[in-house]
Nucleic acid binder design. Sequence first.
DNA 1: CTCCTTATTGAAAATGGTTTCCATTACCAA
DNA 2: TTGGTAATGGAAACCATTTTCAATAAGGAG
Lengths: 163, 163
Amino acid sequence: MPRGQCRGQGWWHGKFRGCGYRITLGREAVLDVLSSCGGHLSAEDIFIKVHSKYPNVGFTTIYRTLDVLCGLGMVCKLDFGDGRARYELAEGPKGARHHHHLVCTGCNKVIDYTDFIDEEVDLLRQTEKGLEKKYNFKINDHVIQFYGLCDKCRKEGGKDAGF
Amino acid sequence: MPRGQCRGQGWWHGKFRGCGYRITLGREAVLDVLSSCGGHLSAEDIFIKVHSKYPNVGFTTIYRTLDVLCGLGMVCKLDFGDGRARYELAEGPKGARHHHHLVCTGCNKVIDYTDFIDEEVDLLRQTEKGLEKKYNFKINDHVIQFYGLCDKCRKEGGKDAGF
DNA sequence: CTCCTTATTGAAAATGGTTTCCATTACCAA
DNA sequence: TTGGTAATGGAAACCATTTTCAATAAGGAG
Ligand SMILES: [Mn+2]
Ligand SMILES: [Mn+2]
Ligand SMILES: [Zn+2]
Ligand SMILES: [Zn+2]
């Protein structure tokens, strides 16, 4: 990741400018972290990573940037019920596939799964259509998550972090 | 709802005592509100209702009671992404059926639906089984929610309360 | 390149739902 | 009735997130 001159040609710069947003170091750094590290990072996770490289990017900017990115549909804000939001790239240069989440309530590990997505999405679409008609709703989004205990946490006794 | 002498014979008292919990006025009042009013109440909603009848039941007790009730599986804690938890009776004397939620991001109205539950539950069970095997998880719970705009909010222009 | 407008920023304070503390109260088994 | 202890309420603490506001810097115009 070259420094000074990497500004101005990221894959997302076009979309970004097109919406009237300025390209700043903070925003660049956040996007950088999101695409290099895996998903499901909290604002704090992101802040720490960004801060280690650019110590004068503040926490507020992290939140504000994530907000903008969510607004643009470039980032998904996730809620696994542990009191802090998580963020993941909606689709990067490599185009992350649509997936759902399996969350361990013991250690908060999150698994992306795509195995059963097709059937799920089928049913979902069908359900959404039915619900839209019956309740006259315009459905924009859905959340499907499974909660449980991972292999390791199951063995360590049934203690459950709750959620 | 008779006053003083209704203590001691609620449908839930048995279960409650069996687990070593004491039966108190606060707990009784919370359960009362949950079963008389519909579901999806926030802790504050519940506090206000309880407080209007028993002004010396504190906010803390509401939270603590809801926690206990969740622990016993008598109440479900719901998260619709608006920053406050909601609660609903898991199954009352009338035995509320399992259902999923349709949430309006405009006015926060929540609709319980059971229409497509059967197909959903079928697929869910299947998916859970697959996931458990593949990832060696013990799945305890799932969340399925649809977000969108209700009839009214759709007409009032596309403003979206976000979530 | 330089200037200028104004979007963006960082630090600190505010917010708001929820939890913790701790001295006091009141269930309820014996 | 009584004693041990679970439960309580009020205030303070917590903690992720948001707001405020003066200072800064992106980037189009010239
Ligand atoms: Mn994911
Ligand atoms: Mn419901
Ligand atoms: Zn785990
Ligand atoms: Zn609405």
